[in-house]
Structures are given as C-alpha cells and as structure tokens.
C-alpha cells in the first residue's frame, strides 16, 4: 500500500499553486490520476519517485517510510527504485535498445530478464537499433521494458500513450495490462483519455488545483455504473449530423465508429470531441457468430 500526504507550493505558468494531496493506493492496483494539465499530477509522480522534494508531508510504501519531513527522512530516487516511464520516453540516445535495457540492470542482477522483456515486448529484432531510428510506439515499448528491468514494485506512467496514434494506443493498452498483471505491479498512470482509463484502471483520482476532488472505481467514476444498461461503451464524438427530425451522432469507440440516433434535445448538449457513454439494454443487441 502506498500512502501519500504531500504539501508543496508549485510555481507554474499560471502563478503559484498549493499542492495538498492525500492519496492511498492499494498494492497491486492500477490507478489513474486524472485532471487538467497543471493540476499537479506529474508533480505528484515526481514526488513519489523522489525527483521532486515535497515542502512537507509523508510518503510510505508498504510500511517503509520514503519521505517524512518531520523526521527528516528523504530517500533518494536511486533508493526508491520506481519504474518510471517518462512522457518523452527518455531513452538514452547513445545506447541501442538492448544497451538501454542493460543499463538498468542492478548490481549482480541476472541478465536473463533482458531477453525476457525484449521477447515480451517484441523488441528482439530492434535490439541493436538506436532510439532515434524507432517509431513512437517502439520507443514507448523500449521505455516501458527498460523501466521493468530492475523489477520495480511501482510502475509510473506519465501520459505514456498520448503521443501515439489510435491503433498503436490500443495495442499498447493491452500490453500495459499484461505487464501490470504479469509483474504484479502497482501501476500509477496519468491519462486524459477516458476510454483508456476505464479500460486500464481499477480506480481513479481526479486532481484539480493540487487537490483530490473525486475518487472511485473507474466505472463508477465516469458514471458508467449508474445505469442498469449492460451494453455500454465510452467513446468520443466525431460527428453530429441532423437527419430529418432526429440527429445521428458518430462516436469513436476503440477503433470502431458507431452511430447512435439522438433526439434534438439531447443533441443540443453534445459537442464534437466530447467523451460520451453509449449504452443500451443487454436485451437489444443481436449477436451472430462470424
């Protein structure tokens, strides 16, 4: 279990902001920090991993104190050994894929994990390539594999998939889930993509102006459990089109576009780009074997 109690005055472009957070994360959970940019999500991750020092507060991980301003405990990032996947991947340009992974090996650590990770991430063929020659999705896989080399208990993912196209994003979401389960990680994700959050996380914390304003399980959080409808998906509105006396709303769900009929009254509340829930009763869809 990770317990965070963090106080820090952050200065950003919009002036100063007081971060004042209380978070408890269960061991083995996949947790998402959700909120506007500048709300303090990345700062929270940096404080957990020891890259940023809180003004005051406490961080305990599985009973060990990592930071305590009152008793002057402040473990260095080197001692915390958190698997951190940065938004810009932070791959070492002077090393090839394999060397990037090998660099992360700990003293006397068996290097069989390198082969295991390369194989699992389907990177074997790319292992001698330099990072600059890789695509975004490949870089992301390298960054993730590299973060796992030292067998961390906590994996931090700072908007890991935001720069990727949809197809790659969906593939890597699957991969993240597998990794989370396979290595029994406690994973903390920063993401804006509601579909992604619902798909990946056990629980969600919404952070606004340095404070947790809402938390719950992912499905509860976005209201997905608020109806008895069982045939439900979340997606993004791509198109709103009037047809006769009704509207047809095109919604991107995963990599499929579906179309839903909507009354003008409801359509008036919707905008292109909105994240929406599409639901129907389990009794309605037909099902056919392909």
């Amino acid at each position: 279990m990770i317990q965070l109690n963090l106080h820090k005055t952050l200065s950003s472009t919009g002036g100063k902001m007081a971060l004042d957070l209380d978070l408890t994360i269960e061991k083995g959970h996949f947790v998402t920090l959700f909120g506007e940019s500048g709300a303090g999500k990345t700062s929270t991750l940096r404080m957990l991993s020891g890259l940023l020092k809180p003004d005051s507060g406490m961080i305990t991980v599985g009973g060990t104190t990592w930071f305590d301003s009152r008793s002057n405990i402040d473990l260095k990032p080197q001692q915390r050994k958190v698997g951190y996947v940065f938004q810009d991947y932070a791959l070492f340009p002077n090393m090839n894929v394999r060397q990037n992974l090998e660099y992360a090996l700990q003293k006397n650590q068996d290097n069989s994990i390198i082969r295991e990770l390369l194989e699992f991430a389907e990177l074997e063929e790319l292992q001698h390539r330099k990072p600059e020659t890789l695509s975004g999705g490949q870089k992301q896989r390298v960054a993730l594999s590299r973060a796992l080399v030292q067998r961390p208990e906590i994996l931090i993912l700072d908007e890991p998939l935001s720069a990727l196209d949809l197809k790659m994003r969906i593939k890597l979401q699957e991969y993240l889930l597998q990794v989370h389960k396979k290595y029994k990680l406690t994973t903390i994700l920063v993401s804006h993509d509601i579909g992604e959050i619902v798909k990946l996380s056990d629980s969600v914390f919404e952070i606004q102006n340095g404070r947790v304003i809402k938390n719950g399980t992912a499905a509860d959080f976005f209201g997905l459990n608020k109806t008895s409808a069982k045939f439900r998906f979340s997606g993004e509105i791509l198109k709103i089109q009037r047809e006769d006396v009704i509207y047809i709303i095109s919604v991107l769900i995963g990599n499929d576009i579906i179309r839903v009929v909507s009354d003008p009254k409801e359509a008036a509340l919707l905008r292109i780009g909105d994240q929406v829930l599409v639901a129907s009763k389990a009794f309605n869809p037909i099902i056919q074997k392909l």
């Binding site: 006769d244 006396v245 009704i246 009354d263 003008p264 009254k265």
Partner: peptide, 22 residues
C-alpha cells in the same frame, strides 16, 4: 407534432410528464 420526410417527432403530455415519441 413535428413532421419530417420519413420520421416525425411527437411531444406528448402524460401523467409522468413530457414524453417524446419518434
């Protein structure tokens, strides 16, 4: 009643309030 080419939209006053039927 709002009549369209193929579909029409009715606003109905009922005991449970306003109901729209297409």
């Amino acid at each position: 009643v709002e009549m369209g080419l193929l579909l029409s939209r009715l606003i109905l006053e009922t005991n449970i309030g306003e109901v729209i039927a297409i």
